[in-house]
Computed example of a mutant assay.
Amino acid sequence: MHFDLDGADNGNLPLFLLFLAFVLTFVITRLITRLIRAGRGPFKNNVRGGVHIHHAVPGIILTIAGAFVSVAVGGSSPGAEISAVMVGIGASLVLDEFALILHLQDVYWSREGQLSVQVVCLTIAGLGMTVLGVNPLTESATLNLGPLALTVNLPIHIVSVLCCVGKGKFSTAAVGAFIPPVAWIGAIRLARPESRWARRRYSPQKLERATARAKAFDARFGNWGLDVEDLVAGKPTDHTPAAASRS
Rank of each mutant, 00 (worst) to 15 (best):
residue 141 A to I: 05
residue 141 A to P: 07
residue 142 T to E: 01
residue 142 T to K: 00
residue 142 T to F: 04
residue 143 L to Y: 13
residue 144 N to M: 14
residue 145 L to I: 04
residue 145 L to T: 09
residue 145 L to P: 02
residue 146 G to Y: 05
residue 146 G to S: 09
residue 146 G to H: 06
residue 146 G to A: 07
residue 147 P to T: 11
residue 147 P to Q: 11
residue 148 L to H: 07
residue 148 L to G: 05
residue 148 L to E: 12
residue 148 L to V: 14
residue 148 L to N: 10
residue 148 L to I: 14
residue 149 A to E: 00
residue 150 L to R: 14
residue 151 T to R: 14
residue 152 V to Y: 09
residue 152 V to R: 04
residue 154 L to W: 03
residue 154 L to G: 01
residue 154 L to K: 06
residue 155 P to Q: 00
residue 156 I to S: 06
residue 156 I to K: 09
residue 157 H to I: 03
residue 158 I to D: 04
residue 158 I to A: 07
residue 159 V to Y: 12
residue 159 V to F: 15
residue 160 S to V: 09
residue 160 S to R: 05
residue 160 S to L: 10
residue 161 V to L: 05
residue 162 L to P: 01
residue 162 L to M: 13
residue 163 C to G: 05
residue 163 C to N: 09
residue 163 C to D: 08
residue 164 C to P: 08
residue 164 C to K: 06
residue 164 C to Y: 07
residue 164 C to N: 13
residue 165 V to A: 07
residue 165 V to Y: 03
residue 165 V to Q: 02
residue 166 G to S: 12
residue 166 G to A: 13
residue 166 G to T: 07
residue 166 G to K: 07
residue 166 G to N: 12
residue 166 G to L: 13
residue 167 K to P: 01
residue 168 G to Q: 01
residue 168 G to Y: 00
residue 169 K to Y: 11
residue 169 K to M: 14
residue 169 K to S: 10
residue 171 S to C: 01
residue 171 S to P: 00
residue 171 S to L: 10
residue 172 T to L: 13
residue 173 A to M: 04
residue 173 A to F: 05
residue 173 A to H: 04
residue 173 A to D: 02
residue 174 A to D: 08
residue 174 A to V: 11
residue 174 A to E: 04
residue 175 V to E: 00
residue 175 V to T: 10
residue 175 V to G: 03
residue 175 V to D: 00
residue 175 V to H: 02
residue 176 G to P: 11
residue 176 G to D: 07
residue 176 G to L: 04
residue 176 G to E: 09
residue 176 G to N: 06
residue 177 A to G: 13
residue 177 A to C: 13
residue 177 A to V: 12
residue 178 F to Y: 14
residue 178 F to M: 14
residue 178 F to P: 09
residue 179 I to A: 12
residue 179 I to G: 06
residue 180 P to E: 08
residue 180 P to K: 05
residue 180 P to S: 08
residue 180 P to M: 08
residue 181 P to D: 07
residue 181 P to Y: 08
residue 181 P to W: 09
residue 181 P to F: 10
residue 181 P to K: 06
residue 182 V to G: 09
residue 182 V to P: 11
residue 182 V to L: 11
residue 183 A to P: 14
residue 184 W to G: 07
residue 185 I to D: 01
residue 186 G to C: 02
residue 186 G to S: 03
residue 186 G to F: 01
residue 186 G to Y: 02
residue 186 G to T: 02
residue 186 G to M: 01
residue 186 G to V: 01
residue 187 A to W: 08
residue 187 A to T: 10
residue 187 A to V: 09
residue 188 I to R: 02
residue 188 I to L: 14
residue 188 I to Y: 06
residue 189 R to V: 15
residue 189 R to H: 06
residue 190 L to I: 13
residue 191 A to G: 05
residue 191 A to T: 01
residue 191 A to C: 03
residue 191 A to S: 10
residue 192 R to I: 06
residue 192 R to M: 11
residue 192 R to K: 12
residue 192 R to S: 07
residue 192 R to L: 11
residue 193 P to I: 00
residue 193 P to S: 00
residue 193 P to T: 00
residue 194 E to M: 03
residue 194 E to Q: 06
residue 194 E to D: 14
residue 195 S to A: 11
residue 196 R to G: 15
residue 196 R to W: 15
residue 196 R to D: 13
residue 198 A to Q: 01
residue 198 A to W: 00
residue 201 R to Q: 10
residue 202 Y to C: 03
residue 202 Y to W: 03
residue 204 P to T: 09
residue 204 P to L: 07
residue 205 Q to A: 15
residue 205 Q to C: 06
residue 205 Q to D: 15
residue 205 Q to G: 14
residue 206 K to T: 14
residue 206 K to Q: 13
